[in-house]
Design a protein around this nucleic acid. Sequence first.
DNA 1: GCATGTGAATAGATTCACAGCG
DNA 2: CGCTGTGAATCTATTCACATGC
Lengths: 215, 215
Amino acid sequence: MARLPVYLRCLVDMAERDLQTVSSDRLAGLAGVGPAKVRKDLSYLGSYGTRGVGYDVEYLVYQIRRELGLEQDWPVVIVGAGHLGHALGHYAGFQARGFRTVAVVDVDPRKVGTRIGEAVVEHLDDLDLIVKEHHAAIGIIATPAHAAQEVADRLVAAGISAILNFAPTVVQVPGTVSLRKVDLSTELQILSFHEQRKAAQLALGRRAAHPGGGR
Amino acid sequence: MARLPVYLRCLVDMAERDLQTVSSDRLAGLAGVGPAKVRKDLSYLGSYGTRGVGYDVEYLVYQIRRELGLEQDWPVVIVGAGHLGHALGHYAGFQARGFRTVAVVDVDPRKVGTRIGEAVVEHLDDLDLIVKEHHAAIGIIATPAHAAQEVADRLVAAGISAILNFAPTVVQVPGTVSLRKVDLSTELQILSFHEQRKAAQLALGRRAAHPGGGR
DNA sequence: GCATGTGAATAGATTCACAGCG
DNA sequence: CGCTGTGAATCTATTCACATGC
């Protein structure tokens, strides 16, 4: 379920504010979803709530972290040292949540050796070695679209088994490899789609209010 | 439908390679989905295919662009001139797809006046003016989590009607405003969830193969 | 013959409503 | 009495299968 990470963040916030328990209603409010959905989602993890009271915040944090595999930390390799690679390399929320950037790689020899946050940029050709050395399981593609498929193939060949793709193109990977994508333009296009529909609705409304106004 | 932008990208690629027509099978292959899904999706736009032949690439591009509201261009305001704001401001795929970054704003006075791509960073307090002047309808939140809700409120107050949120927190907006989020940590956590399940499966498999090896 | 377009079948996610328990 | 946990009902998305038309 894609909502567990959201719950987790809300719960961690609450734990930091020393709250002991939380009801599905409250958590639903914070997470921006319905209370029934929260209860269904949490019931997948087991029956960790107390009727009449709610859920124990600490315990729920533990259970969700376990479910998401966040008890261990995950070494991450970023491919692409452009603007996006920089942003990702500097992103503090990463380290905080158990994802450690062990390397940033790029094909451009001028970028190799420069620093990005904690890491020094290495060459893409050393990917196999880097992945093996750090036991990296997750790779992030932050390259232009035209390079994405080749990078994906190399990541897979190097032994990576999960990929997060930021390049605006579809990449194919073997069924054994998990793949998710984050696509900027797609998100904006979905927003423009909704905007355009709102505008159309509005025009329709106006026409109904002043029939014959057009023509 | 969240797949139209993907189809659009595939179709534009094909158009650039001077291909006239495409079958649902082919497009499905490129977009990484099933052929039936492609046909259902496209049938929403109307019956623009030719039986026995396929779809006319140019025409379909036009129809999808129209459906998504990409005939007009959309002025975009980016809030936050940190690493992510930089990456977004420099992202070329933006301009190419009809989204024009008209301003980057930040609260930090030291950042005001610096350049990001085409734009010069302005102060968040001038948001109202900027939005009105450029008729911006879309705002992007690229700030730390703690600032996200206030920024969202300001964007709404300034007259923005669609928001793309990159901050790792839930923001609330009025029902009239479209909202989408892109959340790095969430994506990584979903990947780690899958990895962890793969590992569990594997352990189970090993136990079945060597029963009694554990105890 | 070949590929679309679409009703029907299926699967999946969400919501409802309430029994059950602290 | 309040809130969880969950079957049943509903809604939405996906897949199937084939009639339809070029």
